[in-house]
């Protein structure tokens, strides 16, 4: 969030959402990301199989 402090107010960079600490933690958590790894693989395979049909 400290980035917001150095971004000029009312510029385009002022408005988009930024992840909070919990979201950042989940993005970096080995355990959580391991689960996501298998889920993402499954989702990609669904796209791949559809693309080859």
């Amino acid at each position: 969030m400290e980035n917001r402090l150095i971004i000029t107010k009312y510029s385009e960079q002022y408005y988009p959402p930024t992840p909070n600490n919990f979201t950042l933690f989940l993005r970096r958590s080995i355990f959580f990301q391991l689960i996501r790894f298998f889920i993402l693989n499954y989702k990609i395979m669904k796209i791949v199989i559809k693309g080859h049909s």
Binding site: L26, R27, R28, S29, I30, Q33, L34, R36, F37, L40, N41, K43, I44, K46, I47, K50
Partner: peptide, 14 residues
Amino acid sequence: KTTMGEPGLAGHWL
């Protein structure tokens, strides 16, 4: 249902 965008460490492993 099949469109997604997810940032994280798992993406790098992929």
